[in-house]
Design a protein around this nucleic acid. Structure first.
Lengths: 161, 161
DNA sequence: TTTTCTGCAAACGGTTTGCATCGCT
DNA sequence: AGCGATGCAAACCGTTTGCAGAAAA
């Protein structure tokens, strides 16, 4: 497996990472009047998370951030994360038990496949009958603004247990 | 508007209500060894909610139940609701801000249209490319067990504000 | 220096838990 | 009578808030 990936993959990843970093910085600048150390640390950490395609809880982030700055407060993290979620850079997945995890948005589709057992999830890309959605909105007298599709299943690891 | 509905509608509603009441009773009997007053009150209330096609929070239920039995405890309500959610008779809709409301399941599709402003929601029935979902599951090595589709929009009341 | 943002600690709100009591069976 | 379910109150846990102090501009 290793070595079979073309070199351009790394270049693409770098480009994506730079773009994401830029987007995060921009959103922070729009929302706040001063750029600070916590903002920088969070942006860096999220870029790393995005590269690894990992999802995370607030607590995960906080523990990692603490390793860089032991004084960074939970409330700051909540405040900054809220901004990013609101601006659509982070996506929040709610689980049936009321917990939730975040991940960096690769695109705006919000289509996920999540494991009902270990809760890991992957993004999927499906072709959906969006017109039908809009029609359903019209019939119920709703102006449609978006949608979320979550597929539930059991991943191979959790099936074999 | 009133009086235009055919008589059969009422008959259907009664039939649905009886079926639902029966289902709830059955689920309680499976899960618990004794049938009690709180179980009965909750079953009755849920049937009423289903007929009115209303969604509700735990707190809504609790306040209504209190009117019938002032001693009914919150924890009992949580415990019994959990059983019904687990058995699929109640569906829980999570909102982006971490709150959630419940409603009695009309079917197993879990397709909703929710207002981003007032959070009211209606059930919709769409024809979705389920095969595609299964394929996506196969590709990610997940055994698909179900899915949830939520459409977000703004209802007419909230648009005019 | 001014004003914004942060970190702390306390408050908050919904949910769960331990336990004595109630009430089905 | 026996034991399962309930009601109460306290614990819990993730999140939010108020405020004094730190640090951008």
């Amino acid at each position: 497996m290793l070595g079979t990936k073309p070199v351009t993959l790394h270049e693409d990843q770098n480009r994506d990472a730079e773009m994401l970093a830029h987007n995060i910085r921009t959103v922070f600048q729009q929302a706040r009047k001063r750029s600070t150390c916590p903002q920088k640390l969070i942006a860096e950490l999220l870029v790393a998370q995005a590269l690894e395609q990992k999802d995370f809880s607030i607590d995960d982030l906080w523990h990692q951030l603490r390793q860089q700055d032991a004084r960074l407060g939970r409330s700051t993290l909540y405040r900054l994360i809220e901004i990013l979620v609101h601006e659509g850079l982070l996506d929040r997945i709610d689980f049936a038990d009321g917990t939730h995890r975040y991940h960096v948005c690769a695109n705006k589709s919000h289509q996920h496949l999540t494991c009902v057992h270990c809760r890991r999830f992957v993004e999927v890309s499906l072709t959906l009958p969006v017109e039908q959605f809009v029609n359903a909105g019209v019939q119920a007298d709703f102006a449609l603004e978006g949608f979320t599709l979550t597929l539930f299943g059991r991943c191979s690891d959790c099936r074999s247990q």
